[in-house]
Design a protein around this nucleic acid. Structure first.
Lengths: 410, 410
DNA sequence: CTTTGTTTGTCCAGTGGATGAACAAAGAAT
DNA sequence: ATTCTTTGTTCATCCACTGGACAAACAAAG
C-alpha cells in the first residue's frame, strides 16, 4: 500500500521552478498601499474610531489618514456611523469596518459529513448548512458539496464584493496548489479539488488540511497569541501549527503529521508502517481496537466514540478507565509537542472533545508532571471552544484573508 | 531539582509588556532604505555585477540604482573593481561587496572548551582561537572568554565599521534578552551573559542556544533552503529549527528541546523527570550508561565517545553494535521530526558526527522504512560538513545579520 | 450669552524619492 | 568610417507624505 501512495505522490511532482519570485521593489505605490492597509487594519481592530485617533494611534499624519479614509469609504470597506461623543472639542466622526461588504464560504468535509458556513468579512456566521452521508464516492460527495455551496451562495445578501472566496478543509494531505494528495478516510487520492471547484464558481478557492484550518480558526477567533498548536484528534491525529503568528505548512505542505510520531519504539505497528505511533494510543483508534471488549464489535467505526461516551456517562468504570488511559497517552504526545515548540497555547479539537470530561485530568497531570518545567511557564492547554465550527471558520477566514491579501498587493 | 529550576525561571519573569510595538508606518524613508537594501543584497548575492544588470535584475530604474550605488560606495559597503567585458557596447563598471568593511566575532562555548572565530561580513573565517578546560566556575570561564575575544579583536584588520558584533553560542536555554537561564552541563543558572559582555566591549552582543546557532549556520553556509532542522547530538540533544527561512525560537525561546521527546512511553526515567526521553537512547548518554560494559567506568564522561570511536575503529564488534543501536534510535526521533515538520533538510551535527561511519546506515534505513512515504520526497538527511565550525559560524552570522538589520532600519 | 481653549478634519505648499527620457561615453560589428 | 549597443548620468516630472494653517464644532468658565 505504501508503495502505491508513493507512486501517486511521485506523479504529482510539479515544476515549481517557474515561481522565480521577482524581487519586490519599493515605490510610491508600495507606501500608499501599506499605509492604506494600516489604516484599514486599525479601523478593523479598534473601531469605533475617529480619523484623529487613527492618526494618533498609527503615527500617520492627519492629512494622510484623511485621504486614505476617503478612499476606503469610496471602496465601501468602511462607513461613517455619525458623530461621536466630544471630549471637549469638535465631535469626531465615527468610522466602522463594513463587514458586510462581502461574504466568505467555509466548508468542512469530514469522514461522514459536510458542513458549510457563510460568514461576513469579520467572520460572523450568517448561515450554516450541513448534511451527513455514509461511504460515498468522490463524485457523489462532489455533488453534495456543490449543493451546499449553491445553497450558501443563494442565501448571501447582495454586497459590493459578493462572495470573496471559498475555503474547503479536508481530512488529509493537501499541497500548495490545492490538490488533495491523500485522504485515507475518504478514499481520495490525488484529486485536484481546487480546479474542480474553481471551474464551477467564479471566485478564489482555497483547499487546506483540516488541522491547519482549525489552527488558523483558533488563531483568528481565539486569544490571538502567536504560537499556537492545534491538535485535532479524531480517527487519526493531525496537528496545525501557528508559529510566529503564521501557519507553518512545511516544505511540501505536509507538516503536522504527528499522529505518526513514535511514542513507543517497540510498540505495535501502525497502518503507516511505523511502530508505536501516537494515534494508535491516543485517538479513536485506541477505542476502536478495544471495541469488542465492550460488545461493540458490530458497530460502525464512526459511532464507537459516541457509544463509549454514552457508557462512560452511565458510569461504566471500564469505559472511564479506557478514556483515562487515552488521556494519559494524549499527554505523552503533548509533552513532545510542548518540548519541541515551546508554544503559548495548545488547543485540542475535533471529535475527542466529546470525551473531555474523562481525558482532561489525566492529560493535564501527565503534562504537568513530565514536560520540562520551564516550558510550562506561559503555557495554556485548552479544549477547543469553537466546537464543530473550528475548521469551517478557519477556512472561511483563510478566504477572507486571501481577499485582503489580493487587495493589498493591488 | 526540578522545583529548584522552576524557581530560578519564575524569578526571571520580565515585563515584556513594554514592548508595545508601534505600528510601522510607511514613508519615503522606508522606500529608500528598502531599495538600498535590495541593491546591496543584489550585489552581495550576484557579484560581480554592473549597475545596469542590477537595474535589470531588480526592476528598479537605472537612475535609482545609480544613486543608491553612489551612497553605498560612500558608505564603503561596496567598491568598484574596474571595467568588465563589453557585450557589444560600453564596458560595464563591476561592483563588488566590500566584505572587509567590518568583522564579526563568533564564540562557541562547549562543556569543556571555548572556540572563537573572527569572520568578515561574508562569513569567511579570518582568525580562530580555542582552548579547553575542565570543570571551571563561571567566573573562570568568563576570564577565558574575555581572553579569546580580546585576542580576536586585536587580530582584526582595521576597517570602516570595525567589530560589528559578538555572538555567543551556549549549550543551554537562553531567553530573548540574552540571559542564559539554564546550562546544566556548565552548571550555569540565570546568568545575564549579554550584559556582562556588553559592558566590557562596545558592540552589540547576541547570546543564542548552540543548536539554534548551528541551524542558522547551516542555513547561511549550506544549501540555503528554507526549512531546515539541525539536530545537535552531544551529551544531550538539542534541535534548531529554521522554518520558512527564519529561526523559530518559540514563545519564550525554548523551542527545540527534543532531547526530551518521549520515544518509549514505558522507558527509563530521564534526569528531566520524564520517561523514555530520546536522548537517553540516541545521544552520548546511551554510551555513558554502558561505559562499564566496555571497561570505561573510570573515564571522564567527555572522553567516552572518543574512546568508543577508537574501539569501533579497531573493529570491536560490540562497540559497533552499540553505535548501530544508537543510529537506529536516532532514526526513531528523526522520524518524529520529519513527520512533524516536513522539512527539506535535516542536518545532524555536534559530537556524534564522530561516529557517522557506524550510525548513518542504521539511521537512514530506519527513516527510509518508517517515516511517512510522502515526507521523503524532497528530503535530505546529512551530517554537518562544517564540522566544529557550525555553531561559531552561526553566531558570527547572527551578529553580521544584526548589523545589517540595524543598518536597514536606520 | 460670550469668551476661551480644545478637538476634529481639510487644504495646501514643500520635501524627498522614483521614473522616464534624453544624452554622452565607450565599444562592437559591419 | 559608420552604425548600432550598452552603460551610466542628469534632469524635469510625478506622486505620496508632512507640517502648518485654517475653519468648524464644541465644552467649560465667567
Amino acid at each position: 500500500m505504501n508503495k502505491e501512495y508513493y507512486a501517486i505522490l511521485q506523479k504529482n511532482e510539479e515544476s515549481d521552478e517557474s515561481t522565480m519570485l521577482q524581487n519586490k521593489i519599493w515605490n510610491q505605490n508600495t507606501i500608499k498601499n501599506g499605509n492604506k492597509t494600516l489604516v484599514l487594519e486599525t479601523i478593523m481592530n479598534h473601531s469605533p474610531i475617529s480619523r484623529a485617533s487613527i492618526a494618533d494611534k498609527t503615527g500617520l499624519n492627519k492629512g494622510t489618514v484623511s485621504s486614505q479614509v476617503s478612499e476606503l469609504l469610496d471602496e465601501d470597506l468602511i462607513y461613517e456611523q455619525g458623530p461621536g461623543k466630544s471630549s471637549g472639542g469638535r465631535k469626531p466622526v465615527i468610522l466602522l469596518f463594513n463587514e458586510v461588504a462581502g461574504y466568505s464560504i467555509g466548508i468542512d468535509i469530514g469522514v461522514n459529513y459536510i458542513f458549510g458556513i457563510l460568514t461576513d468579512l469579520k467572520g460572523n456566521i450568517c448561515q450554516e448548512k450541513s448534511l451527513t452521508f455514509n461511504k460515498l464516492s468522490f463524485d457523489e460527495i462532489k455533488e453534495k458539496l456543490f449543493e451546499i455551496v449553491d445553497c450558501l451562495i443563494t442565501s448571501a445578501p447582495s454586497s459590493t464584493y459578493g462572495i470573496v472566496g471559498i475555503g474547503i478543509g479536508v481530512p488529509g494531505a493537501t499541497n500548495k496548489n490545492g490538490k488533495v494528495l491523500l485522504a485515507p478516510n475518504l478514499g481520495w487520492q490525488n484529486i485536484d479539488l481546487k480546479t474542480i471547484v474553481e471551474n464551477r464558481y467564479d471566485c478564489p478557492v482555497i483547499i487546506e488540511n483540516e488541522a491547519n484550518a482549525g489552527a488558523y480558526g483558533e488563531k483568528k477567533f481565539g486569544t490571538g497569541v502567536d504560537d499556537i498548536i492545534y491538535v485535532s484528534i479524531g480517527v487519526g491525529i493531525g496537528v496545525g501549527l501557528i508559529l510566529n503568528g503564521d501557519l507553518y505548512q512545511g516544505n511540501d505542505g505536509f507538516s503536522g503529521e504527528m499522529g505518526h510520531m513514535t511514542i513507543q519504539a517497540d510498540g505495535k505497528t501502525c497502518r503507516c508502517g511505523n511502530d508505536g505511533c501516537w494515534e494508535l494510543y491516543a485517538s479513536e483508534q485506541a477505542l476502536i481496537n478495544k471495541a469488542d471488549q465492550f460488545g461493540l464489535e458490530m458497530a460502525d467505526e464512526n459511532d464507537i466514540l459516541q457509544e463509549m461516551v454514552g457508557m462512560a456517562e452511565d458510569g461504566d468504570q471500564e469505559a472511564i478507565n479506557l478514556f483515562k488511559t487515552i488521556g494519559d497517552y494524549m499527554g505523552v504526545g503533548l509533552i513532545n509537542i510542548i518540548n519541541s515548540f515551546n508554544p503559548q497555547q495548545v488547543i485540542i479539537g475535533n471529535r475527542i472533545t466529546a470525551a473531555k470530561k474523562w481525558v482532561e485530568q489525566p492529560l493535564l497531570e501527565k503534562v504537568n508532571k513530565n514536560a520540562l518545567w520551564f516550558q510550562q511557564n506561559h503555557l495554556e492547554i485548552n479544549f477547543s471552544e469553537l466546537s464543530g465550527y473550528t475548521t469551517a471558520l478557519g477556512v472561511a477566514a483563510f478566504s477572507t484573508e486571501n481577499f485582503f491579501k489580493i487587495y493589498k498587493e493591488r
